[in-house]
């Protein structure tokens, strides 16, 4: 049973990208202002779920052929690797490093090793949430 969802599908095509852009913005805002990997990951998930609602799961799977369990593992690896880098420098685990750089286009930007950790968090959140949603949603 498929109702006429042209409106939803058309809107989704635009809205998804707005949500994704916002997710990226929130993700990078995360260090000094509210935001970060967790909320960025949740926003990304909502974008994918919106796609799944507007179209259907097989279509979305064709567009985004991602194994979300592997995505979770990669995210965890990112996080562990960032945290473990402190072992190599023989400082307590999770010690972070940061500095200020002049980047073209952005001006003076602070780059932080916690960003790498946050990428890990982002991937884990997307992976875990999508795994859960797929597990429930897959069989009708």
């Amino acid at each position: 049973m498929r109702t006429n969802d042209v409106m939803l599908q058309t809107a989704t095509k635009v809205v998804t990208f707005i949500i994704l852009m916002f997710a990226v913005h929130i993700f990078f805002a995360g260090h000094y202002t509210p935001g970060g990997g967790f909320i960025g990951g949740l926003l990304t998930t909502t974008a994918i779920v919106l796609l799944m609602l507007a179209f259907d799961i097989p279509t979305v799977k064709k567009v985004l052929p991602i194994n979300y369990v592997v995505l979770t593992a990669v995210g965890l690896l990112f996080a562990i690797a960032t945290a473990s880098a402190s072992i190599i420098f023989d400082v307590p685990f999770f010690t972070h490093a940061y500095d200020y750089y002049d980047l073209p286009l952005f001006g003076e930007t602070s780059l932080h090793s916690a960003l790498l950790f946050d990428i890990g968090v982002y991937l884990v959140v997307v992976g875990v949430t999508m795994t859960i949603i797929q597990t429930i949603g897959e069989d009708e």
């Binding site: 967790f38 875990v128 949430t129 859960i132 597990t135 429930i136």
Partner: peptide
């Protein structure tokens, strides 16, 4: 909250 979120979603899947 994150832990409760994970546990609740696990519980939902389990219940289903």
């Amino acid at each position: 909250i994150v832990i409760a979120f994970a546990v609740t979603s696990f519980f939902l899947v389990l219940a289903y």
